[in-house]
Structure formats: structure tokens, C-alpha cells
Design a protein around this nucleic acid. Structure first.
Lengths: 338, 338
DNA sequence: CTGAAAGCGCTAACAG
DNA sequence: CTGTTAGCGCTTTCAG
């Protein structure tokens, strides 16, 4: 099974020491060019690859980072994963996938994997620190961890995030600018911080414009399609239903739009809708969804770059890094007509 | 930085040998219960975690598998990734992400990562074996590799796949059953095998029903939205445009439907459409897309189970494992009316 | 049931 | 520039 060449095989054949081979192969510049060339040729010929476990044990690093999300199945993470993978690979790192399904045990398990050498650093996209025994928690604060997308308050970890409040406010202001007055909001799973902030942005915009938020205009959702549908139904059972809805994510927005179609309401003719996230294929929907887009690829890249910096000994920015968002005005918003 | 407890720290404190600690912690059943308990308690208290590099080096395995896809950013892989992750984690394995972007160098790099100890096995979702030097290729045939979704002919690796020909044929037969006669096909990137097979299924169904395939009814696409749009446009510039289209994947189908909307054609009123893949949110589109669904979660699980079996020394099934597909009839297909 | 000892394959002092 | 030596932390013979 395992008769792959070892460093000493190369050394023996060439009559040099293993150390020299190691040095030649790592471009340390400490080996005479002719020797070095012979070594590299022989390595190539034998198809030699240094054993990573041995190297990792010796160097005390794994050249691997852990990317931990709530749900690997969520398409939202795709572009981020892509960005992380790009930056990681460019720096010679591999990416290990972590999936918590919001299970605290699994969440803290990934912290363990940082200590046991599975990975050198971690990008966390879960909303809070897991529960764990005090012993386990002990070393956490010093681990090379970057929080992306989400916000873990008081964690002390560097963050790469967006301005959820501002982006939400901007979306609602756009609706107001179109002449809408009765504007509702379908929230994410409060009290998760992301949902809270988007809700806050909605409220700020409404207050700033001196607009009322009638009872029932803030409908709870949980980021999945069905909840958008249901929240929407409740909205149109109100005595005075809204003429525009700002919805905390695209997936719920699609559910809501479907529901309105069933009720017989036209989007954007009767009701304007703005979502959040700019999901893949959102543009291909009918009508194409007006939404707030986040630079997910860049968020992934940035988080990884930050992590790489920390791994290289640089210290992380004390302030969160905030990436710009953009309101993409497409086909689900229209000027209000009475 | 690295003052984590080692096995010998536990041993020293308890006055036992490192070997005993190792045995106790691995549940070998060779340690007296009281000793074993004391050891486990101490390990817990010190928050001990065995160093994986050392263990991997010693045991010659990494308890990691490599999942290699063409494009991490493609939502199509999500459910598969999820299935793989579930099975892997249940067996104590971690999943390392590989992304080739169809770059041959990167493709063969992942084979290298199998030999150098990065991973014990690999699930490959790329359509062919990469080019590589003969030396590199040397050991490939014996590696624990499972091909999922795609087909790599002559590779000798076990496959987990679907019956693309049959599924495509079934889709087209459904259109025929609805009374359509002028049925076109938008292909994937021929000559990739998956595209070829779906095309073949289309042709079989047409031939079986004695239907003509006029010039221009087989439009080339490449699985991305834009190509679906363009292929669709070409289709409706034909002297006798189709009344139904079978499209090799959902993404192109969305593009095509958009295009038809622009041309002023109603789906399914004027033209029926069937896609392939059952993409996330396909049901939320308007009209909801009729499509062929594959059990992606199960494909992922199955591929991983197979791989785990091989890693455990069982030999792989010589025949490809074929997972069932299902035609999901939703809103983009209707009976033909002249 | 437990301990002593060896060694997985590599890199990094240290000495020349 | 190169070789010798030691050791990363663990598991697994081999003895007892």
C-alpha cells in the first residue's frame, strides 16, 4: 500500500543527507545549485511528495483553515466559500468545512479542532460563541479566529461585516422615496443580531420619515421561504395592509411574492418588495427582485486575508471591517399610486 | 502559544505511562476501569486533545476526505456537500474542499494530496481524469476514489450516478404525452459526458415517437443562464419554432424562460419547458419550473458511504450505483393546443 | 493489565 | 554549503 518514496530514499540514491534534501525542496537557498537541481529532478522522477503529517508534526502547523457555517446547504454561503477558498489556496492553505446546524456541541467541537492541530485558524460564520465547559473555553480568546458576516459581540475576535442597519435603512428610504407610506417589514429570526439590526434599520427609516408603524407591520420570519409566505399572508389580513414590504432576506421575499401572486396582488403594481442578500439567480426571477447586495466574494477574501495576517503574526484590526452594500433596484419596486 | 497538555503530562500526573493513557483514551478495553476513569477525568480537566498530526503520522491516516468539484460557487453541489458532510462526520471524518475551476494542474494536485497524507480518500465530481506526468499517474488507479454525479470512463473508480439518458428520455416523453410534436433541446457543454447523455435521451425519445428533429432544434448551451437565453433566442428565429423545450439544466431553463417572456411568449401557454436538476428555489420561481430532480443529498451520502467502505478495506462495487431521478411536474408544462 | 522502547517522516539546531 | 543529531506527540509492539 504505502511504498511511496521518503526523503531518505532520495537522499540515499543521491548520496546526500536527508537534511539537504529537505532544504533543497523547500527552496531555503542554502543548497548549492547543482546539488539542488539533482535533488529536485530525482524528487520529480520518483514523484516524491513530502508527508504532511510528519511536516505538520514537526512544524506545528497544518496549513489548513476551518470554515464554519450554520448550514452548508445554504446557498448564501457559496460565494463566501469561494472567496475564502481563493485566498486560502493562493497562500498555500487548504479549507476544511465545518457545519454546525446550530448545535452547540458541534460549534465548540470546531474550537477543539483548532487546538488539536486540525487547523491553524478559523473563519466563523455563526452568530454566537457556543456554550462550553470553562476548561474548554479557557484558551479560546487567543485563538486565531475571524468572524465573518455575523457579529459575535464581546468575543474580541476581528470581524468582517456589513452595515446591516444602514443597508436596511437605505432600502426602506428607497421605498419612501417612491412615495410609499404604508411600509411593512418581515424580520429574520429575532433576537439573532443580524435580524435585529435589519429591523432597527427599518425602524430608523420609518421614524426619520415620520411614518407610522401600525400594529402587525413587523411580522416575524425566520429566513426560510415558508415563513415569508406566512408572514405575507398575515400582513394582508390586516385592516390596512401595506403597499410596500422590506423583507429581511431574499428567500423570504420569494415566498412572500409567491403568496401575493396567489392572493391576486401584483408585484410591483400593487405592492413593492425589497429583499436582502442578492441570492444567486435572483435576477432570473420574475419579476427580478430588488434587493440589497453584499459583496460576498470579497467578504470571504477579506476574512481569509485577515486570518492569514493573524497567522503570520500581525495583529488584527481592533475595529470591525465593514464592507459596502448596494441597493440593486430591479423589478419588484415601483412608485406608489393611490 | 502552545502549552497544551500532552499525553505525557497526563501520564506524569497520574503516575502511569503514556502508553496507558493512550490506551485508555482510545477505549481499547485494555485498561482497568478505575485507571481508565482517572485518566479520562484528568484528560477532561486539562482539556486534553490528542494532537492530530502526531496521531496521523503514527497511524498513517488523516481521517479526512477530499471533496473535489469544478466550481465551489455552484449551488448545484450544495446538497451533495451536505450529504457528504453528514456521512463523513458520522464516521469521524472531516471534509476538505477542493475546487478545480477545470484547471488540469489543480485537478491533478488533488490526486497528489491523497498521496501526501492530506486525505485518505477522495470524492471526485469532475468529468475526467486530469492530464499528468506518467510518474504522477502511476499510483492513481489504486487510490480510494469515488466518482459522483459525473462519469469518468475507463477510470476504474466506482461511480455513484444517475441515469441521465433515461431521465432525459422520460422528460421528453412527458412533453410528447402532452401532445407536443415540435420539441427542441438546449444542450449542456458537449462533449462532456453528462451533456451528451441528456442529448442522447432527448434523441431516443424523439426517435421512438417517430418525431422529426429539424435543423436547429438541438441548440448548444453550456449550463449557464446566459447560454440558455441565447439558445432560446436562436430557437425562436427558426422558421418553425418549437412548442416545447427540454433544457439540459435548470439554470439555462431560467434564462430561456426569461428570454421568452421578453419575446412575448407565455410559458406554459405558448411553450412548455422542462429543466434538469431541481435547483434550490426552483419551486419559488414563476411559473414554478417543471424539472428532473436528482436525489443530491443521497448521492452525497452514498458516495461517502462507498468511500468509507473502501477505506475500511471492503472492495467497491464493480458496477456503477445508479440513483433514481424523478420528473417533478410543476408549472412550466401544459398540454399542446394548436 | 501496564510499562519500556521504538519509530512514523520530517525539519531545525548545531557543528563543521 | 552539508551532515549529524534530536525530537515533534503519538501509538504499538514486545515484555513482563
Amino acid at each position: 500500500m504505502n511504498d511511496r518514496p521518503r526523503i531518505k530514499d532520495i537522499a540515499r540514491r543521491l548520496g546526500v543527507s536527508p537534511a539537504t534534501v529537505s532544504r533543497a525542496l523547500s527552496d531555503s537557498g542554502l543548497v548549492a545549485e547543482p546539488t539542488s537541481r539533482r535533488i529536485r529532478e530525482m524528487a520529480q522522477q520518483l514523484n516524491y511528495r513530502p508527508n504532511v503529517s510528519a511536516r505538520n508534526l514537526r512544524t506545528q502547523r497544518s496549513m489548513t483553515v476551518l470554515l464554519v457555517v450554520r448550514d452548508v446547504g445554504n446557498p448564501f454561503y457559496l460565494e463566501i466559500l469561494k472567496g475564502v477558498e481563493q485566498s486560502a489556496r493562493a497562500a498555500g492553505y487548504s479549507v476544511l468545512m465545518g457545519n454546525t446546524e446550530s448545535d452547540p456541541a458541534r460549534e465548540s467541537e470546531y474550537f477543539g479542532m483548532l487546538s488539536d492541530g486540525h487547523a491553524d485558524g478559523m473563519i466563523l460564520m455563526t452568530g454566537k460563541l457556543p456554550e462550553a465547559s470553562p476548561e474548554a473555553r479557557q484558551g479560546w480568546p487567543d485563538l486565531p479566529v475571524v468572524v465573518a458576516l455575523e457579529i459575535i459581540e464581546g468575543s474580541g475576535y476581528p470581524h468582517v461585516q456589513i452595515d446591516n442597519v444602514g443597508a436596511a435603512r437605505g432600502a426602506v428610504e428607497h421605498l419612501i422615496g417612491l412615495g410609499h407610506r404604508r411600509i411593512a417589514h418581515i424580520t429574520g429570526p429575532v433576537p439573532e443580531i443580524m435580524s435585529v439590526r435589519r429591523l432597527q434599520g427599518y425602524r430608523e427609516a420609518m421614524v426619520n420619515a415620520n411614518l407610522d408603524i401600525p400594529d402587525g407591520y413587523e411580522q416575524p420570519g425566520d429566513f426560510v421561504l415558508k415563513s415569508g409566505r406566512e408572514a405575507c399572508r398575515r400582513l394582508f389580513e390586516l385592516p390596512e395592509p401595506p403597499t410596500a414590504i422590506f423583507i429581511a432576506n431574499d428567500e423570504m421575499a420569494f415566498g412572500a411574492i409567491n403568496e401575493m401572486r396567489q392572493i391576486g396582488l401584483d408585484v410591483p403594481g400593487d405592492v413593492s418588495v425589497i429583499g436582502f442578500d442578492d441570492l444567486f439567480l435572483g435576477e432570473a426571477f420574475y419579476p427580478p427582485l430588488t434587493t440589497v447586495s453584499q459583496p460576498r466574494l470579497d467578504i470571504g477574501r477579506r476574512a481569509m486575508t485577515l486570518l492569514l495576517g493573524m497567522l503570520a503574526g500581525r495583529d488584527a484590526p481592533p475595529e470591525p471591517i465593514t464592507m459596502p452594500t448596494e441597493l440593486l433596484v430591479r423589478g419588484t419596486t415601483a412608485r406608489f399610486q393611490s
